[in-house]
């Protein structure tokens, strides 16, 4: 016997969490875009999405974030540190790839310096993952050794019931156990079977890819020039990626006062590595695309022991010229050696 949550209890569930001080976020379709947004009732949620267009990363590492407010006067500088809101949040209906993305980025944000902006939000958030029952042509979690029912990054794991009436519920962290306690009267014992997982074919051999990338000879390979020829150099793949985490610090204001902000930045942009002198060490799109792949499947793994990709496939799904990690890694794993 396991515990289940019925769909028709979801409104009560949201109310219970709100009563316990949480705001509830779930996949929503708003203004012709799907993303995670705050919901008040079950009917606000878009359950039919394989994956929202935007990642939950947006709610932990927003595209622009104020850090410091400052004022410069003749003899002194006043500054005020701006901290992220400490609102407790439940993220309901996160896909395993997006939840994994958070776990993949944790070591990065806590490495030489503990990024409060990230960790405060992480500590105040409970991730309720819903296991996938559908995949599309771009899903590739299995290729990066995750799966449609991976519990990585999750606090609670929900498995859809075969009859569609609800989900089998399992806490996979202490935070998850605590969250389930707030709704325990709404859960019931049941042994309904769960829906089968979708078949997500392995699209490349990530071990082979990693081996090739680690070979110093690969850095100058003609391969990069050929594969990146059609890359137009926009930032959509990086900004829609659940693990891309690069940012820029900008002061916004006038000479005397302003706000220092942390803004998303992208290795796809020429400005990303532009030196003050005008020299740009990555002065072509192929060197930028190489950096993105190397960072995800070579450097990041070298530093944190994990690849910086959770296989969501958004990079390809949304690319205006149909590029993406899948094609590049497929090409690498079939290179003659």
């Amino acid at each position: 016997m396991t515990r289940i949550l019925l769909r028709n209890k979801l409104d009560d569930c949201i109310a219970a969490w709100q009563k316990a001080g949480f705001s509830v976020l779930a996949p929503v379709r708003r203004h012709e875009m799907s993303s995670f947004g705050e919901v008040q009732k079950a009917s606000d949620m878009a359950f039919d999405l394989v994956l929202p267009e935007r990642t939950i990363k947006d709610h932990f590492f927003p595209q622009t974030e104020p850090l410091i407010k400052y004022k410069i006067s003749k003899h002194q500088i006043d500054s005020e540190t701006m901290t992220p809101p400490d609102q407790k949040r439940v993220f309901f209906g996160v896909r395993p790839c997006d939840a994994s993305g958070l776990a993949i980025d944790d070591p990065l944000f806590g490495w030489d310096y503990k990024d409060d902006y990230w960790f405060k939000r992480r500590e105040n958030s409970v991730i309720v993952t819903i296991v996938c029952t559908e995949a599309d042509d771009f899903c590739m979690c299995t290729s990066v050794k995750l799966s449609p029912d991976s519990a990585k990054g999750a606090d609670v794991l929900l498995r859809p019931l075969l009859n569609g009436a609800g989900w089998q519920v399992e806490a996979v962290s202490e935070r998850g156990t605590a969250l389930l306690e707030t709704i325990s009267p709404l859960l019931q014992e049941n042994s309904e079977p769960t829906a089968p997982l979708p078949q997500v074919a392995e699209k490349f051999d990530v071990e082979k890819v990693m081996e090739w990338l680690a070979d110093p000879a690969s850095f100058e390979s003609q391969f990069w020039k050929d594969i990146a020829l059609r890359c137009v150099g926009c930032g959509s793949c990086t900004f829609l990626c659940p693990t891309c985490h690069c940012f820029d610090i900008q002061d916004e204001g006038d000479t005397y006062q302003g706000i220092r902000r942390k803004n998303w930045d992208s290795c796809s942009f020429a400005n990303f590595t532009m030196h003050t002198s005008g020299h740009n060490p990555r002065n072509t799109q192929s060197t930028r695309w190489r950096q993105r792949i190397m960072h995800k499947f070579n450097y990041y793994r070298g530093k944190f022991g994990v690849n910086s990709c959770s296989g969501c496939g958004r990079c390809t799904r949304q690319c205006p010229v149909d590029m993406g990690i899948t094609e590049t890694l497929q090409a690498i794993s079939t290179l003659p050696r």
Binding site: M33, Q63, C234, G235, W264, S266, P320, V321
Partner: peptide, 16 residues
């Protein structure tokens, strides 16, 4: 405003 609020400044519009 609702539409532009969604913009993430990826500059895909410009690049294509």
């Amino acid at each position: 405003k609702e539409h532009f609020a969604k913009c993430i400044k990826c500059y895909a519009c410009r690049q294509v």
